[in-house]
Every structure is written in structure tokens, then in C-alpha cells.
Lab assay of single mutants.
Amino acid sequence: TCNCGQEAVLLTVRKEGPNRGRQFFKCNGGSCNFFLWADS
């Protein structure tokens, strides 16, 4: 659950770079700036 109470979504980094393939949680509604690496 993110900061605004919505269910956070699990996404994967697709951009080229050191974090490519890494998963993270983000706010589903985009109404808050919630971000969390899945492996932390």
C-alpha cells in the first residue's frame, strides 16, 4: 500500500542501465510520489 492508501503496483525497470530488470513498487494512481525497490 502506498502513501495515499491505494494499492501499489509492481513494475520492472526497462531502461538501459544498472537497474535494468530490477523491480519496484509505485503508486497506482500517480497521486502521490510513493516509490520502493522490491528488493530493499
Score class of each variant (00 low, 15 high):
2 C>G: 02
2 C>F: 01
2 C>S: 02
3 N>L: 07
3 N>G: 01
3 N>R: 03
3 N>D: 13
4 C>V: 00
4 C>A: 01
4 C>G: 00
5 G>K: 08
5 G>Q: 08
5 G>A: 05
5 G>L: 02
5 G>R: 04
5 G>C: 04
6 Q>V: 06
6 Q>A: 15
6 Q>G: 10
7 E>G: 09
7 E>P: 12
7 E>H: 11
8 A>F: 00
8 A>M: 10
8 A>L: 08
8 A>S: 06
8 A>W: 06
9 V>C: 09
9 V>G: 06
9 V>R: 10
9 V>E: 12
9 V>L: 15
10 L>A: 07
10 L>E: 10
10 L>S: 06
10 L>M: 09
10 L>R: 11
10 L>T: 12
11 L>Q: 14
11 L>V: 14
11 L>T: 13
11 L>R: 14
11 L>S: 13
11 L>W: 12
12 T>K: 06
12 T>Q: 08
12 T>H: 05
12 T>R: 05
12 T>S: 04
12 T>W: 01
12 T>G: 01
14 R>A: 13
14 R>S: 11
14 R>P: 07
14 R>W: 11
14 R>M: 14
14 R>Y: 12
14 R>Q: 13
15 K>A: 07
15 K>E: 15
15 K>W: 11
15 K>C: 06
15 K>M: 12
15 K>F: 11
15 K>N: 14
15 K>R: 15
15 K>V: 03
16 E>L: 08
16 E>T: 11
16 E>K: 12
16 E>V: 04
16 E>P: 09
17 G>Q: 02
17 G>L: 02
18 P>H: 06
18 P>C: 04
18 P>M: 06
18 P>V: 10
18 P>W: 01
19 N>G: 03
19 N>T: 11
19 N>A: 04
19 N>H: 15
19 N>E: 09
19 N>S: 10
19 N>W: 04
19 N>L: 09
20 R>C: 03
20 R>V: 09
20 R>E: 12
20 R>Y: 13
20 R>H: 15
20 R>G: 10
21 G>W: 00
21 G>L: 04
21 G>N: 09
21 G>S: 04
21 G>R: 02
21 G>V: 01
21 G>Q: 02
21 G>I: 01
22 R>W: 02
22 R>M: 02
22 R>K: 13
22 R>T: 05
23 Q>H: 14
23 Q>R: 10
23 Q>G: 09
23 Q>T: 09
23 Q>W: 03
25 F>R: 05
26 K>C: 11
26 K>L: 07
26 K>P: 09
26 K>M: 08
27 C>M: 01
27 C>T: 00
28 N>W: 14
28 N>I: 15
28 N>V: 11
29 G>V: 12
29 G>P: 03
29 G>A: 15
29 G>L: 09
29 G>R: 11
30 G>V: 03
30 G>Q: 08
30 G>S: 07
30 G>A: 05
30 G>E: 11
31 S>M: 11
31 S>E: 15
31 S>T: 15
31 S>D: 14
31 S>R: 14
31 S>H: 15
32 C>G: 00
32 C>T: 01
32 C>V: 00
33 N>W: 03
33 N>L: 00
33 N>V: 01
33 N>A: 11
33 N>G: 12
34 F>L: 01
34 F>H: 05
34 F>R: 05
34 F>K: 03
35 F>G: 03
35 F>T: 03
36 L>S: 15
36 L>G: 10
36 L>H: 09
37 W>L: 03
37 W>A: 04
37 W>R: 03
37 W>T: 04
38 A>V: 07
39 D>G: 08
39 D>Q: 02
39 D>P: 10
39 D>M: 00
39 D>A: 04
40 S>P: 09
